[in-house]
Design a protein around this nucleic acid. Structure first.
Lengths: 348, 348
DNA sequence: CTGTTAGCGCTTTCAA
DNA sequence: TTGAAAGCGCTAACAG
């Protein structure tokens, strides 16, 4: 068995010597560059295999000596979760500059497909090595993503995906599974009581929200026959609107026992819940750990938050873009974003 | 404000020129090496500050050109969780050798303090740059850890800590909080019913198990007065023993509604639960996601698993050892291990 | 198709 | 106390 020689002080030169060729040729083979006779390729490959040779990344990086530029296209609104991602990007400043990496955050109205698409198109030729984008699943956005990819820019979608595009990677959670998790929590925590469940979302037009609700309903309807799901309220992620709609709903249905907030606007949702006077009887599950949801969890108003680690997402996006740009393999396991269940006692 | 110049193509040479000194002097200042006049130090420091200069890690790494050796001291038994950590270390092979890093796994009886201590002592002078150890909190182990640290080796404790030692870092969860989380889950999922709760642990002598149980009791006794905690069963993480003890307990107490397994031996615990015939009425919470607990979660036998991501722990341990060895700052946020709540729908 | 060679930005002797 | 210079292992021109 070929053991990856632990103390491998092997270098390109050693491989070159073993294969009876020059440094440059080994380099060509290593990077699948053209202009090498098939037979030579084979000899070099063999030498590489035989020694399970791994080129020294630091040396490669240094020799390439190219600064990389990445753009992060993010929503311009005051979304707490998105601001957390940006803040974690900020914390990486030192790490980034020690690697000669620059990331620029570009704020855009990601909820308007044409604006977002235009924003992306404008990056073409902007000399970016990679772009991370909180995407909206819409044909024009998909086209813009594909154009970027065709222009040679690496693209990762962040938090919200455009699966039909040719983006190189998606950094975010499986939102259907997240919705299912929320559903299971509401169902289990409500217990044997029967009653109605209210759902608030930003908009069902947003792919992630729609998927969460889909997963939620799936679980409730198949496993918790004691619960009846009420029609989704679309609060547009706005506090006031969410509050008004939900208050009205509480007025109409005194037998609400569960509440699922699939989007933002948590402030308003919590307000409506508080005003309804059934804070303690209603199981309330929402998304993301922010200063607000943290407080609600500690107060016992909120029972659980489904969350995706914003710091992890920020770092994973950068690392993946970097690996893609360098043509290095990605540690999928490391870059996978988990669905976290956060309750009072395991608040991060 | 000093903005970290994004396109910073600044090098040591630039700083040297600005400060009116040579490369070597800047390097000395950068690494706090002696032999530089205080005044010169100041000038250089200023130039560095002024440009918020960050040395290029790849260049530094290459120039240093030193292979690093790390040792992972892990339990020799057939513990699924520990095997997962080792397997993730294995997956990093390519990543490691591309950075000229070697990690060796050393299996030891970590449950015997003297054996573990001896094992650690034997690493002194073994030319290791860093050691990760699944530690047992015992005076002789503490001494061994301190000896290693004194010998210049960086030490991180993994999964199980020795807080009183001078280990450089702990990679693992807060076990009290983990126990609290388990308690809250059991309490919430049991609902309004009253009854008894059984606890199984490997040994209360193990710090992590003891802490989990402490946290668990804390929550149950203060918030779930409908539940009565039974004396802890010590199953030594062995399937058979755990099964026997638990079966006996089920026989004695027909009103058990909750079950918390703070350690391993899950196979036996599940068996006893199944045989008792109250699989469906008893809320069962345990630790770690393994092939076994995954199956139990899917079957609905287990309701939740409190878990610490073994892949993350493996990678974090390596990264932290590396940063410590290089004297680079650690991204604490990135290396912090979270307490994951895993239920059927958010299984990783 | 293949080889030679000049760096990349830092570290580390060795002199001064 | 300081500086000059020789690499570290790889990449990318440029020659052949």
């Amino acid at each position: 068995m070929k053991e990856p020689d632990p103390s491998s002080p092997l270098t390109l030169k050693d491989i070159a010597r073993q294969a009876g060729v020059s440094l440059a040729t080994v380099d060509r083979v290593l990077h699948n560059r053209p202009g090498v006779r098939p037979d030579t390729v084979r000899r070099v490959r063999e030498a590489i295999e035989r020694n399970s040779f791994q080129p020294h990344v630091a040396a490669a990086e240094l020799a390439r000596s190219r600064a990389r530029r990445f753009a992060f296209v993010m929503p311009s609104g005051p979304n707490l979760f998105m601001m957390q991602i940006q803040s974690y990007l900020g914390e990486m400043a030192g790490w980034l500059s020690a690697r000669r990496l620059a990331v620029e955050v570009i704020a855009t109205d990601v909820f308007d497909p044409s604006v977002l698409a235009a924003s992306l198109e404008s990056l073409i030729g902007g000399d970016y090595d990679g772009v991370a984008v909180v995407a909206l699943d819409h044909p024009s956005v998909r086209a813009a993503v594909n154009d970027l990819v065709d222009a040679g820019t690496k693209v990762v979608t962040l938090v919200s995906d455009v699966p039909s595009s040719r983006r190189n990677h998606y950094i975010g959670i499986d939102n259907i599974a997240a919705g299912r998790t929320a559903g299971a929590l509401v169902g289990r925590l409500v217990g044997p009581r029967s009653g109605k469940v209210a759902i608030v979302a930003g908009s069902q037009g947003l792919r992630d929200h729609a998927e969460r609700i889909f997963g939620f309903n799936q679980v409730i309807s198949s496993e918790f026959s004691n619960l009846e799901v009420l029609p989704v309220l679309e609060g547009r992620d706005e506090d006031e609107r969410s509050e008004q709609m939900l208050s009205r709903l509480f007025g109409k249905h005194p037998d609400i026992v569960g509440l699922y907030n699939a989007g933002a606007g948590t402030q308003g949702v919590a307000k409506a819940l508080g005003d309804s006077g059934c804070e303690k009887q209603v199981v309330f599950v929402g998304h993301d750990v922010t200063v607000l949801t943290r407080k609600l969890l500690l107060q016992g108003v909120m029972d659980a938050a489904i969350s995706q680690n914003p710091g992890h997402e920020a770092r994973a996006a950068v690392r993946v873009l970097l690996s893609l740009a360098r043509g290095e393999p990605i540690l999928i396991e490391q870059e996978k974003i988990r669905i976290d269940i956060v309750m009072r006692d395991n608040l991060p």
